[in-house]
């Protein structure tokens, strides 16, 4: 295994084409170090980018907030910009992990690691975040919802990486927000189910709705079919059966060492029901 530490972005991009074999970007390293130790990365090049200032920092312009890919969770949680404009994001991530992990791990690293259970994706999905991707001569923006293509498969081109996350300042404004992560304990836990939601209800009618889930598919995703079904509906006409039938098409929970697929499905349904302030339970 090789190790590379470029001094800046220019140096990084000029050296990337010369590296043969698999490339792994170390942006925080809280997961990749475990993978290395467990022998999951037998060969290839580890490219250390943790120190690159171009990928760091939280800024705001007129309408948008930019969160650099190397922003750590600690920095995000302490950011006055985020606290002011996106308290929903803080609320969603406050029990994210241990102080050790929040200090080391980065948002970009978490996203690009591609774990189906990652905690940051569901809130970013309902906030309709965009990712800025950069390569040697190019920079582009894509909706975050288009980033995952499959289990650990990404809409990244060769030698392209995440520069940062763009979120509209008013992304959650005027919405009722919801976030719930269910793990085996209150913190330091991997999600069994996570649900994030934004909604607007007008006279008992759903006028706007965004729902995203984690740990229920091969990657975190928005539930567009369910949203389309719910939009325009009167809350008191909704039936649990209908929501459940759509969910069956949109989520594919599995059983593993951590949890059971039946449990995951039911909890997801219960949480969405709770988010919609419906009460189907007897």
């Amino acid at each position: 295994m090789k190790f590379l530490k470029p001094n800046n972005l220019t140096e990084l991009f000029s050296s990337l084409p010369e590296i043969s074999g698999k490339k792994y970007f170390l942006a925080g390293g809280t997961d990749i170090n475990v993978q290395i130790k467990n022998g999951l990365i037998p060969e290839g090049t580890i490219i250390y980018i943790n120190h690159l200032p171009e990928l760091n920092g939280i800024r705001q312009d007129e309408n948008e907030i930019f969160i650099g890919a190397l922003t750590t969770y600690r920095e995000l949680l302490n950011s006055n910009i985020i606290k002011k404009h996106l308290p929903f994001l803080i609320h969603s991530l406050k029990n994210f992990a241990s102080p050790l992990l929040t200090t080391m791990s980065t948002l970009g690293g978490n996203i690009a690691n591609g774990s189906p259970t990652n905690d940051v994706s569901p809130p970013l999905l309902v906030l309709e975040a965009e990712l800025e991707l950069i390569s040697q001569n190019d920079s582009r923006r894509i909706p975050f919802q288009d980033f995952y293509l499959g289990y650990k498969k990404f809409a990244l081109k060769e030698n392209e990486l995440i520069k940062g996350i763009w979120i509209k300042q008013n992304a959650a404004k005027g919405y009722q927000t919801f976030y719930k992560k269910v793990g085996s304990r209150k913190t330091l836990t991997i999600a069994k189910v996570s649900v994030a939601g934004l909604k607007r209800i007008d006279h008992g009618q759903i006028t706007k709705i965004k729902i995203a889930v984690g740990s229920l598919n091969e990657y975190p995703r928005r539930l567009f079919q369910l949203e389309n079904f719910l939009i325009g509906k009167d809350l008191d006409t909704l039936l649990e059966y209908d929501i459940s039938e759509i969910l069956k098409k949109e989520i594919t929970p599995i059983s593993d060492l951590r949890s059971e697929k039946e449990y995951r499905f039911q909890v997801c349904l219960n949480l969405i029901t709770k988010f919609l302030s419906l009460n189907f339970v007897g």
Partner: peptide, 11 residues
């Protein structure tokens, strides 16, 4: 310890 879940102080 990834999956073996002991309660934390928050629990």
């Amino acid at each position: 310890f990834t999956d073996y879940a002991m309660p934390t102080t928050l629990d």
